[in-house]
Amino acid sequence: MGPFKDGWTKQDIEAAITRGLPDELAYVPILIGMDPPDCAWAEAICVTLARHPDADVRANAVLGLGHLARTCGRLDLSVAVPTIAAALQDADPHVRGQADAAADDLSQYLGVAVPQPIP
């Protein structure tokens, strides 16, 4: 997917994080969320990238948390829920939309409600 070849490794992902290129980083949460080699590792990366300055990276990071809810069947809710709740209030509409999708995933796969912003 994107700049990553089939058979990517944790080292490939960590090298991309070190390079810090937003066009490359935007793919990281989707890859690791859909096929995590280690759920805790993948979740930590998504949470970190959810604070990235680039909106596409942030958007995919919160979506990655939703993917992890499905693929792993668990998340550290004390971290994931506030991360998604904060993204629901992001200035960028794409980030908010992906956060809404992630909140739906947490509800469907983990039975957890993410607090919605007060209008």
Rank of each mutant, 00 (worst) to 15 (best):
G2Q: 11
P3T: 12
F4Q: 01
F4W: 08
K5I: 13
D6C: 05
K10G: 01
D12T: 00
D12S: 04
I13M: 02
A15C: 13
A15K: 10
A16P: 00
I17Y: 05
T18A: 12
A26W: 09
Y27P: 05
V28T: 08
I30K: 10
L31E: 03
D38T: 04
A40T: 04
A40Y: 02
A42C: 12
E43P: 01
I45E: 04
C46F: 03
V47G: 07
A50L: 10
A50R: 06
D56Q: 12
R58H: 06
R58N: 03
A61H: 07
A61C: 06
V62M: 00
G64Y: 07
H67V: 00
A69W: 03
A69I: 13
R70H: 06
G73R: 04
L75E: 07
D76M: 11
L77M: 08
A80F: 05
A80R: 01
V81A: 10
I84D: 01
A87S: 15
A87E: 10
A91I: 15
A91P: 14
A91Y: 13
H94V: 11
R96I: 05
Q98M: 05
A103L: 11
Y109C: 10
Y109P: 04
L110Q: 06
G111F: 09
V112M: 07
V114R: 08
P115A: 07
P115K: 07
Q116T: 12
Q116H: 15
